[in-house]
């Protein structure tokens, strides 16, 4: 049977097409703008880096900063001559930690967080130990790599 009258009024027809095309166009614009705001893909962080021999000669009970990729890190020589490499970012709110030779601890000045020289959280608000790197001695210095705890 043929329907004599349209089941859609002209008004409903136009409104639904405006809504439909408007949604497609609008979401395309929003998608384009927000994808263009995303940061460009930088190179991935390295899995290991090498440090020159001068890093092996740091004095006992001192620390020396280095960059693991773009991450600030510390190489610590303990009093007994043990080299420890730690990420110098506090696990509380990402302030930079420094080594205090008097306390023989790592200190986060932002919220008074303290870590021992192996990076274990001792007191204050930090919830976790600092990330510790593996150190391998090679002929021309050190190779620092991410620890695999598997």
């Amino acid at each position: 049977m043929k329907i004599k009258q349209s089941i859609l009024s002209r008004r409903q027809f136009l409104n639904s097409w405006i809504l439909g095309t408007g949604t497609i166009a609008g979401s395309t614009i929003i998608h384009t703008i927000f994808s263009a705001l995303l940061p460009q893909s930088k190179d991935e962080e390295p899995s290991e880096i090498s440090l020159s021999t001068e890093y092996t000669q740091i004095n006992p009970n001192t620390a020396r900063p280095f960059f693991f990729g773009r991450t600030p890190s510390l190489l610590i020589n303990s009093e007994c001559g043990e080299l420890i490499a730690l990420q110098a970012i506090c696990t509380h709110f990402e302030c930079a930690v420094h080594y205090d030779p008097m306390l023989k601890k790592l200190v986060c000045p932002c919220h008074q967080g303290f870590f021992d020289i192996h990076g274990n959280n001792l007191s204050g608000p930090p919830p976790r130990p600092l990330l510790r790197y593996q150190i391998r001695r090679v002929d021309n210095g050190l190779v620092i790599s991410l620890e695999h705890n598997a």
Partner: peptide, 9 residues
């Protein structure tokens, strides 16, 4: 060359 839709914007 690197940002998505950057050339277009």
């Amino acid at each position: 060359s690197e940002i998505k839709y950057g050339w277009l914007i």
